[in-house]
Structure formats: structure tokens, C-alpha cells
Design a protein around this nucleic acid. Structure first.
Length: 233
DNA sequence: GCGACAG
DNA sequence: ATCTTGTCGC
């Protein structure tokens, strides 16, 4: 057989089949969440993390299209080594609890263009801190098979005690008697972010990587850079 | 019915 | 998410 370097991370056909079967109703989407959430693993499966991806999306043309950006950063110094974006027609409205069905079509399109495989993915949004334990970080992690977690600017579900306003301070986030994430202060005197595992990672590691990739801003570099790319006008 | 509600 | 300039504070 031909000896060639794989130029793409995923089998385009596999991704395309997932996009072809993308749900069109909330009822359908809910069934998918209930089925897939059982496959989520919250045990670390992180080998050596050399590259970490930041993912985010923004709207274009008054909401008619979604632009997603995937940024690959060097895990040791948080420098950007690659960045790709994709624009797709908006196929799902924003409704709390169904964010992944709105953003992932664009995110997956952007991921298909990435050359450097990341060992960890940081999403702008929730992981298991979700009504059905299946936020966008879980969905993307399961589809890609890459460890993933979410860093959200605000809460979707759960109860917590406010951590002190000191960088590194954090408190557990609880929902239905279960610990589902952490409320973490990433910068002195700034409101905390909500960190939760997506797939193949535990809460402590998610918190660790959020702090490790921080650069003096509320948001860690991966999602901060992806956000700037996706929301630029 | 009321409050909560990722982006 | 997005509308939007300068301005206050560490």
C-alpha cells in the first residue's frame, strides 16, 4: 500500500455520516443525548499532552450562519501553532441544554482541516455540568475520541459556594447530589468560570489544565483565542 | 404557574 | 451570542 502521511485527523466520511444524521428536533436531540451520555468516561485517559485545542463558535449574518474556530496550542507555553475556521448554515436555534447541536456542525468542519492532532480539547461551554450530563464538551469528546472538557463563563445547572476571588481558588459544583465540576477563579478579583469534564478526563485534571493554560485573563488561552477568531467581525 | 437558563 | 466608547480600577 502507499506510504503516506495522514493529512487529516478524521475519516471525512465518518464525520459526514454523523452530520448527515444530525437531528432536526429537540426530541430527537434529547434521545441522542440520553443514549450517548452513557458512553462518557470520567477517568483520565491523558497520555502526554503536547498540544491542546481550543474550540468556540460565533454567529454570522444575523444568526443565519455559524462560524466555528479550532485553535491548536503548544501545551507547554500556550503558543498558537495552528488555527482553522469553518462557516456553516445555522441548523439549530440556541436553547439552553442543546448548544452542541447548534455549534458542532461548524466545529467538526473546522476540525477536519486541522493537521496537528491535539491530545486534549477545551470547549467554551459545559461538559457534564448539564441537565442530562451531556454538554458540548462531552459531545465533541465522544465524536472525536479525544479527551475533552468545558470551561463556561456562566452556569447552566448546579449549586455551589462561591470560591474566594483569588486565582486558583475553587469549589465543587453539585447537581442532584453529584459533583459535576468546579467553580474556579482564574484571576484575582474576577468572577469564576465553570469547569467540567467532557470525556476521558476527571474534574481535577480539568481544573489543572484550565489554570495551566491561563495567561492573566479570565479565560484560558485555548478558548480565549478561539473566541477571538470565531467572533471577529 | 414561576424561576432558571452554556452560547 | 450581540448591540457598543469611554472609562474606572488594580
Amino acid at each position: 500500500m502507499a506510504l503516506m502521511k495522514q493529512s487529516r485527523l478524521f475519516n471525512p466520511d465518518a464525520i459526514q455520516s454523523i452530520l448527515d444524521d444530525w437531528p432536526e428536533t429537540f426530541a430527537e436531540a434529547k434521545v441522542i443525548q440520553q443514549r450517548l451520555c452513557e458512553k462518557i468516561l470520567l477517568q483520565d485517559q491523558l497520555s502526554s499532552v503536547n498540544y491542546i485545542a481550543g474550540v468556540d463558535a460565533g454567529v454570522l449574518n444575523k444568526g443565519r450562519q455559524i462560524r466555528a474556530s479550532v485553535v491548536i496550542l503548544n501545551a507547554t507555553d500556550a503558543t498558537v501553532v495552528e488555527q482553522k475556521s469553518a462557516v456553516v448554515d445555522n441548523v439549530f436555534p440556541y436553547v439552553p441544554g442543546y448548544l452542541s447541536f447548534r455549534e458542532l456542525p461548524a466545529v467538526l468542519s473546522a476540525f477536519l482541516q486541522i493537521e496537528q492532532l491535539p491530545q486534549l480539547i477545551m470547549c467554551d461551554g459545559q461538559g457534564i455540568a448539564h441537565p442530562r450530563r451531556f454538554g458540548i464538551a462531552c459531545h465533541l469528546g465522544l465524536i472525536t475520541g479525544i479527551p475533552s472538557f468545558g470551561v463556561a463563563k456562566s452556569k447552566l445547572v448546579g449549586d455551589y459556594e462561591s470560591p474566594s476571588l483569588t486565582r486558583g481558588s475553587h469549589k465543587p459544583l453539585y447537581y442532584q447530589q453529584q459533583k459535576i465540576g468546579a467553580v474556579l477563579c482564574t484571576r484575582d478579583n474576577v468572577k469564576p468560570v465553570f469547569v467540567s469534564p467532557g470525556h476521558l478526563i476527571n474534574i481535577d485534571s480539568a481544573v489543572h489544565w484550565t489554570l495551566t493554560m491561563g495567561r492573566g485573563f479570565k479565560l484560558p488561552e485555548p478558548t480565549r483565542v478561539a473566541d477571538k477568531l470565531a467572533s471577529r467581525r
